[in-house]
Computed example of a mutant assay.
Amino acid sequence: MTTVTSARTLAHPARDEIRLDGVLHALADPMRMTVVRELAAASGELSCSCFDLPVTKSTTTHHFRVLRESGVIRQVYRGTAKMNELRREELDELFPGLLDVVLAAADREADRLGDI
């Protein structure tokens, strides 16, 4: 069951509520895939301000919400910063190999297209 305990706590789906169609939808957007790739490469949490997406702040907020509500990332407040972490362990348990395959494909595409 998804719960919110306070105004500073964000709702996340429980592990057993994460659905493949929601994860695939979240990963299908290039901006969201950029966020996931950066989180996968990070050694820990990253604040929202670490991401330099070529979209408005409200659109960036939307992308983070889609990733969180689909179960791809976990967001927590640390002081005034909203920190983001990939829910890799849970995703790997639910969908073994999916994240690795998608990230590898995104890396190959970025190399092929000359993206960073």
Rank of each mutant, 00 (worst) to 15 (best):
T2Q: 12
V4Y: 04
V4W: 02
T5R: 12
T5M: 03
R8L: 14
T9N: 10
H12T: 05
P13F: 04
P13C: 07
D16S: 14
D16L: 12
D16V: 09
I18K: 09
R19E: 15
V23P: 07
L24I: 10
L24E: 14
H25V: 08
A28G: 15
A28F: 01
D29P: 01
M31E: 08
R32A: 00
R32P: 00
M33K: 02
M33L: 15
T34F: 07
V35T: 06
V36S: 00
A42M: 03
G44H: 05
E45F: 08
C48H: 06
C48W: 05
F51H: 04
F51I: 05
L53Q: 06
P54Y: 13
V55G: 02
V55R: 08
T56Y: 04
T56R: 12
H62V: 09
H63E: 07
F64V: 03
F64G: 03
V66G: 03
L67W: 08
V72L: 09
Q75Y: 00
Q75A: 13
Q75K: 12
Y77G: 01
R78A: 14
M83H: 03
N84W: 00
L86C: 04
R88G: 01
E90K: 13
L91V: 05
D92Q: 10
F95A: 03
P96H: 07
P96D: 10
G97D: 07
L98V: 06
D100S: 14
V101Y: 11
V101D: 15
L103I: 15
L103W: 08
A106G: 05
A106W: 02
D107C: 03
R108Y: 09
R108Q: 14
R112Q: 12
L113N: 11
I116H: 11
